Simulated scan of single mutants.
Amino acid sequence: MNKIVFLLPVSVMVLLFYFGYQYVNNMETATNESLQNDITISLETTRNGNDVRLTGKWDWTQMPVDGLVGDDYIMISLKTEEGTPVSMEELVEAELFLFNGKELLVTITGELEDDGVVFTFPNQIIDHVSYGNRGEIEVSYQLDEEQEYIATFTYVHTWVDHELVKFDLFHSLDAGLPDILTNKYWSINRFIQF
């Protein structure tokens, strides 16, 4: 009888330890490198005559276990259906908003380049609040209402602390990042036609 009183709790403890160990080892975790599979990006446009508003949203469904560091970039370019780049003179407004839940953390104005708009924003955690993992961009244009357009949304994620020298960001990010970051970044392109 004393053996049962002793063996029953010990066997329960061993089983709990075993299944807990299996659970922890089988949990899927995201790293900065695999985060591109865990990010949701949505694009939409609203058109009212010549006024066009492009809204892009992103949200990481998981936080990377290897931490947050570095800057991320979002690039927006606009072309006609025939492939002709739209002049940035048609741009009315370009803003990026970083959120924590529904709380607005930061508003950033986009940098105008010849062929588009570039937003640079931080990836960091300050006082247990994460910056960069969730946000939204709003870009407004005055465009010909008869014309069809294609917008390109490019999201570049980096996970190493770096400082890009001031150069033509729009044309040099894809060419310059491999040299600066040595495979410590990835990019995703999304397109929307309107």
Results as ranks from 00 to 15, higher is better:
residue 2 N to C: 06
residue 3 K to S: 12
residue 6 F to P: 04
residue 6 F to L: 14
residue 6 F to E: 11
residue 7 L to S: 14
residue 9 P to W: 05
residue 10 V to K: 11
residue 10 V to Q: 07
residue 14 V to F: 13
residue 16 L to K: 04
residue 19 F to H: 05
residue 26 N to K: 11
residue 27 M to T: 09
residue 27 M to S: 05
residue 38 D to S: 12
residue 39 I to P: 05
residue 41 I to M: 02
residue 45 T to D: 14
residue 47 R to N: 15
residue 58 W to Y: 13
residue 58 W to M: 11
residue 61 T to E: 14
residue 62 Q to W: 09
residue 62 Q to L: 09
residue 65 V to M: 14
residue 66 D to M: 00
residue 68 L to A: 00
residue 69 V to R: 00
residue 69 V to M: 01
residue 71 D to T: 02
residue 74 I to T: 08
residue 75 M to A: 01
residue 76 I to Y: 02
residue 78 L to I: 11
residue 81 E to N: 10
residue 82 E to C: 03
residue 83 G to H: 14
residue 91 L to C: 09
residue 91 L to Q: 10
residue 93 E to A: 13
residue 94 A to H: 11
residue 99 F to L: 06
residue 105 L to G: 12
residue 108 I to N: 03
residue 112 L to P: 07
residue 113 E to M: 12
residue 114 D to I: 14
residue 121 F to C: 01
residue 122 P to I: 01
residue 124 Q to T: 00
residue 125 I to Q: 07
residue 127 D to N: 12
residue 127 D to P: 08
residue 129 V to A: 00
residue 132 G to N: 00
residue 133 N to W: 02
residue 134 R to V: 15
residue 139 V to L: 15
residue 139 V to R: 06
residue 139 V to E: 10
residue 139 V to I: 15
residue 141 Y to N: 08
residue 141 Y to A: 10
residue 143 L to D: 02
residue 144 D to K: 06
residue 149 Y to R: 05
residue 152 T to W: 08
residue 157 H to V: 08
residue 158 T to I: 00
residue 158 T to G: 00
residue 164 L to T: 05
residue 165 V to W: 06
residue 172 S to C: 11
residue 173 L to R: 10
residue 174 D to Y: 10
residue 181 L to Y: 01
residue 183 N to I: 02
residue 187 S to H: 09
residue 187 S to A: 10
residue 187 S to F: 13
residue 189 N to L: 05
residue 193 Q to C: 05
residue 193 Q to E: 14
